[in-house]
Design a binder for these strands. Structure first.
Lengths: 340, 340
DNA sequence: ATGAAAGCGCTAACAC
DNA sequence: GTGTTAGCGCTTTCAT
């Protein structure tokens, strides 16, 4: 089946193809009659506009590109869910690119997006310390860019993030409020702002309440169930006195929780545990895991909305970049509340 | 910054743009010298090929469209993860469309993909009983189509699914093997093949082992934690004698598990529970939840690979459609094993 | 090995 | 209100 073009419709109706084009794009200067006729014929001939041609000519694709480390995590898939939903409602299509935390692939993704002439790029970066140049490319070419969750701070680019500092702070303060005094922290060695900020929140909460910040209570590694377990093992083996664990990520918290229970330590009676991310399993485990919700879907929606708003304004890169910071929500559950 | 085109490069080197085009696509008939020069100049001028133009001309976009109900579920996001990974490795970009289980939006998604001239569509349908026509459109236009997980059986379209029948069968047989005899089943009222097949597997396993299939032990609704709870409540309230629950979905199984425990019923000692989907939480709850793994990432990868393979062959719709059926994997955990 | 020319299907500026 | 015209930036065929 040969594809129908506006020329086919035009021939059928004895008008020129530009009349057809106008009818299809409901241009103001078009008679009701021809418009109706064109629409009817278009439907009859099964016409589908060729967006390649229209984008090539008009310079707009109505496509945005999303860059994420991986969809195989509930966090990013849920953010992408939110982005796609809102963008789609506003007539945009979404190109997806996973980097697997690789800078090379991130590079390639941006290049592809550039070649596809996307109207914008929404990215959660793999590394904040590198990759400035490729993002500068986007700016040079005037392609709107927005960071979500993970931003390169040095770049003046709009962003939607959550207040990880506050998340770390309120998680820690919550533990303190529950009577815990010697709180260990398990975090990532990835040197991403999100983790550094959670750590900073942890530290500040301690200091605010007159508790010492001790480096030897901070454990780092690739956040995972495993890291949670080994950290607790070390804590125990090295005879550290501690009465709570705040892990910067839920799987890690889960590992800590499991290891504590395995060692016959009662949670939250003897040791309190708080995680971060509000993974689905937290509500179901015993004791249920206290955590910090990151409002993932909302982050996606806000990202899309901010993009749409800024894209509408004349000069995307002209004005001071807007930063939306979402408030994380502490979800106190049983693992951190010995009393209630 | 004005975008660089092959004409700019040509001008710079005093050759025609077609020479440049050839160099860029490394055409065989091109001198090593000019090719090097072109490549150097392209890099220097920051040239990025315009895929819109090239696709418009060549008729290939190297873009495929994916249609899923929602990314906000671990199942589909994980499948999409697998698809994108493989497609990307093979030089394709991925357009994403979420339907939210709405037929209208599915319709719109396909239309968008048609207009974007994607090289193929990979879809997990929202409804198997409707939407034949829009998928027929794709065929008419010779756009390769592949179903994954949820297929429309009546349509002769290649697909990658899992053997839900076997999943239901082995889950049920496992419970029987553990000594359970009166096994209730909780499933969806959505009338999707995947659920019907799990039910069929449940039924056949019962019959194979000389146990009666009883309609009043089958509960239907929107699969969810809630459904699991209410089903168990009904089971209990109506005084049904039962000693196990096989839920066609993990959250539902979790609800059942919670309700059982709330009623002081010991799991798996008194009642065994098996779910379906291998959600992350299953490994962490107490007792850990037996379930059936669906090999989500593998499904994505297989989907992509099958597409690539078929796309290579001359006549996509000519031959008999190939169906890949993955084997689900029973994951026995504590909730179903009173003995071990 | 390179050049010339046509055209993919559309948008948009300019006529009438 | 409709027609005419000129591209958007590339691929591809046919010459040379």
């Amino acid at each position: 089946m040969k594809k129908t073009t506006i020329h086919d419709i035009a021939r059928e109706l004895n008008v020129t193809f530009s009349t057809v084009a106008r009818a299809l794009n409901d241009h103001p200067a078009i008679s009701v009659a021809t418009k109706a006729a064109v629409l009817e014929t278009a439907k009859r001939l099964n016409y589908q506009q060729n967006k390649l041609a229209s984008s090539l000519r008009s310079g707009r694709t109505n496509v945005i590109g999303i860059i994420v480390p991986s969809l195989d995590t509930s966090f990013f898939s849920s953010v992408v869910h939110g982005i796609e939903k809102v963008m789609n409602e506003n007539g945009y299509s979404v190109l997806l690119y996973q980097t697997g935390e690789s800078l090379t692939r991130e590079q390639k993704g941006i290049e592809t997006f550039l070649q596809s002439r996307v109207d914008g790029v929404l990215s959660s970066v793999s590394s904040e310390t590198d990759g400035h140049e490729m993002y500068a490319q986007l700016r040079k070419r005037q392609v709107p860019l927005l960071f979500f969750d993970r931003a390169i701070q040095e770049l003046p680019v709009p962003s939607v993030t959550i207040n990880d500092y506050q998340g770390g702070f309120s998680a820690t303060e919550h533990l303190i409020g529950q009577g815990f005094r010697r709180i260990a922290h398990i975090t990532s060695d990835q040197n991403l702002t999100i983790f550094n900020e959670r750590l900073r929140g942890y530290r500040e909460a301690l200091l605010k309440h007159g508790l010492p910040f001790q480096e030897d209570l901070v454990f780092r590694g690739r956040v995972s169930l495993e890291l949670g377990k080994t950290s607790v093992q070390q804590l125990l083996a090295q005879g550290h006195s501690f009465d709570a664990v705040f892990a910067a990520e839920d799987y890690t918290a889960m590992g800590a929780l499991q290891q504590l229970l395995e060692n016959g330590i009662r949670v939250p009676k003897e040791v309190g545990v708080v995680g971060f991310a509000n993974e689905a399993f937290g509500a179901f485990v015993t004791p249920s895991l206290s955590t910090v919700d990151q409002q993932t879907v909302k982050m996606g929606e806000e990202t899309a909305r901010l993009f749409l708003k800024l894209f509408g304004s004349k000069d995307y890169y002209g004005t001071n970049p807007e930063h939306i910071v979402l408030d994380p929500i502490l979800i106190p559950r049983n693992s951190s509340q010995p009393v209630s």
